[in-house]
Nucleic acid binder design. Structure first.
Length: 566
RNA sequence: GCGCUUGUGGCUCAAUUGGAUAGAGCAUCAGACUUCGGAUCUGAGGGUUAGAGGUUCGAGUCCUCUCAGGCGUACCA
């Protein structure tokens, strides 16, 4: 249900019949309940353009607004705000209509676009750590969301599998007589450290490592086999994490750095042809206007750089994958890099003019003291350890509650623990740094996954208790039901905003609103208690059921599961 | 030095992109129930939106300066 655009149409029509010239009509949510459900603030702007009194324009406009359908009434307030109230019967009818819809009233986008979402991007030389969490979760949510709305989504996992450190790693792998399947690679972090020690202590080994770098790049069979087995093992670690996180990334989504390697020479060629790059201090550089520091695309020794690979990837995504929109879910600190690369790609016509290039930046995860999140001894926190800890902590907090079997407990703890980590991350506007706190994320109170999951479980409990066929229409009986039904119908507007702005926290705060509104409704309007009219009982059961559906679907898009009992 | 970015009650975060009296949750205090799972609900106190100017009907949001933090800045990714 696209409420805003329908309202916008109604207002546009009214403007037309009132003979008022105007461009796009923007409808906002009302800032307070006294101001109704929505408001149109455009009159003040129009007044300025038309040099007329805003109250006068508003009066004229209001007379032409159709209040026979979805709108119950409109009022003029303040300097020229137009407040809009939705009609109860309309709400009831629309809410009833989506009861049996498995998309809970959410339609598909009109013109599906090809959207590439680049996220996760782990480095194969190292184990995934907390730094990869945000990219992986935000990216996956964005991809799932866009897909749900009907966009044609292509996931891209741009893994780091190319570079000098791999010479060292495969030389060490060979020396250990191991292949990727052996236990030697169980702990990548340790393996890297061991290899580094060997590299520093033995000149022969170091030479061999350097030689292997060249050999991989030259396509040497033996080295490539070693390299491949190393990458496979490392990817296996990532997949373990993806599996625990419930993230939809597969090997098909992997487009590694190495994939672009053969294309890099062409990138330089293009840049030279377009006269965008020049040689400076022996390196091939692009000087963007106003900047004295260049973007280096080829080193003095002929080697390529980060920017070069990203340019190749951009071109591939625009031309081969035919993307209309390319989203990079990468740490905000790389903002300048992407700004530069995007500019170069457009200037060099590697991507078309109308392809949207977006850096979906996010802040750093901090500890309680506001410092980057590390282990006690200052090391990086492995993602897998973090997730396991979340499950253990969740189990502790649930254990004290009702008796569960061991299996149930394990399952609930997993759903709750992983959900808490993801929700905590997604519920904060992504640009800012965020403070990681176990206590906060595992709390049942406030805007947390547990609060939503708990509300869901409670509704399920009501539905179980009723244990009969739920049928009949939703009826709006009071203000709490009006607001609840309205919120439930706002699901689509919420999702499309989250999709265009790439802001998952829009969804979490919406869900939080839904749940708190449900709690208020439920507090005032008993469902199963005695003395309730059958029709009213059915309506309330339906509202409860619909609320549960929205919670479930919403969390589902965020990659968070629910359980019937907690 | 230059560039980017952030600054919102004690704490953690919002604010529909320039709209009305800046909203939530923790924490604090005060209430509600012989619990449709109280891990709930109702209410109160707590703010010069870092500071100073400016733009206009209207600014947390836009422009300038100052202060404080973070990040980036010629051959890592």
């Amino acid at each position: 249900m696209k409420i805003k655009s329908e309202l916008s149409n109604i207002i546009s029509d009214a403007l037309k019949s009132a003979n008022i010239e105007s461009d796009d009509v923007v409808i906002s949510d009302a800032t307070k309940p006294e101001f109704g459900d929505y408001q149109f603030n455009g009159v003040m702007k129009l007044a300025k353009i038309l040099k007329q009194n805003p109250r006068q324009i508003a009066t004229n406009l209001v007379e032409h607004i159709d209040t026979t359908g979805m709108i119950a009434k409109v009022e003029i307030a303040g300097p020229g705000f137009i407040n809009i109230w939705l009609n109860d019967e309309w709400l009831a009818k629309e809410a009833t209509a989506i009861l049996t819809d498995d998309r809970v009233g959410v339609g598909y986008v009109e013109n599906p676009k090809k959207v590439v979402v680049d996220y996760s991007g782990p480095n194969m030389a190292k184990q995934m750590h907390v730094g990869h969490l945000r990219s992986t979760i935000i990216g996956d949510t964005l991809a799932t969301l866009l897909e749900f709305l009907g966009e044609d989504v292509v996931r891209q996992n741009h893994i780091g599998d190319w570079g000098t450190q791999f010479g060292m790693l495969i030389a060490y792998l060979e020396e250990q007589g191991a292949d990727g399947a052996t236990t030697e690679l169980k702990d990548l972090e340790q393996f890297y450290k061991d290899a580094k020690v060997r590299f520093d202590e033995s000149p022969e080994f170091a030479d061999k490592a350097r030689e292997y770098v060249v050999k991989i790049q030259g396509g040497d069979k033996h080295c490539l086999t070693l390299w491949q087995s190393f990458i496979d093992a490392s990817l296996g670690h990532c997949e373990e994490v993806y599996d625990k996180l419930g993230v939809n990334l597969t090997r098909d989504d992997v487009r590694a750095e190495s994939f672009y390697n053969p294309k890099l020479a062409d990138v330089i060629k293009t840049l030279k042809e377009k006269k965008l790059s020049t040689v400076s201090d022996g390196a091939e550089c692009v000087f963007l206007d106003g900047s004295e520091v260049p973007v280096i695309v080829q080193k003095g020794d002929g080697g390529y750089l980060y920017a070069t690979t990203d340019l190749a990837a951009l071109e591939y995504r625009a031309k081969e994958l035919k993307a209309d929109r390319i989203c990079y879910v990468v740490d905000a600190r790389q903002g300048q890099h992407f700004k530069q690369v995007f500019t170069i790609a457009k200037q060099a016509e590697m991507v078309g003019e109308n392809v949207a290039l977006e850096h979906i930046g996010f802040g750093t995860m901090m500890d309680k003291g506001g410092k980057p999140f590390k282990t006690r001894d200052g090391g990086v926190i492995k993602l897998i350890d973090l997730l396991d800890e979340a499950v253990v902590k969740a189990k502790e907090s649930i254990k004290e509650r009702d008796a569960h079997t061991e299996d149930e407990l394990e399952n609930i703890a997993t759903v709750v623990g992983i959900g808490a980590v993801k929700y905590a991350d997604l519920s904060i506007s992504r640009e800012s740094n965020y403070i990681f706190s176990w206590d906060k994320m595992l709390s049942f109170e406030g805007n947390t996954s547990l609060y939503m999951q708990y509300a869901y479980a409670r509704i399920q409990s009501i539905l179980r208790k009723y244990d009969g066929e739920i049928k009949g229409n939703i009826i709006i009986g009071d203000e709490t039901e009006h607001r609840l039904a309205h919120l439930l119908l706002k699901f689509e507007d919420t999702l499309s905003k989250a999709a265009t702005d790439a802001t998952p926290h829009t969804i979490t705060s919406y869900l939080y609103d839904v749940v708190t509104q449900f709690m208020k409704f439920y507090e005032l309007n008993p469902i199963l208690k005695g003395g309730i009219d059958e029709e009213v009982k059915m309506s309330r059961l339906q509202l409860a059921k619909l609320t549960a559906s929205v919670i479930k679907k919403g969390l589902d898009i965020l990659g968070i599961e629910v359980v019937d009992k907690i």
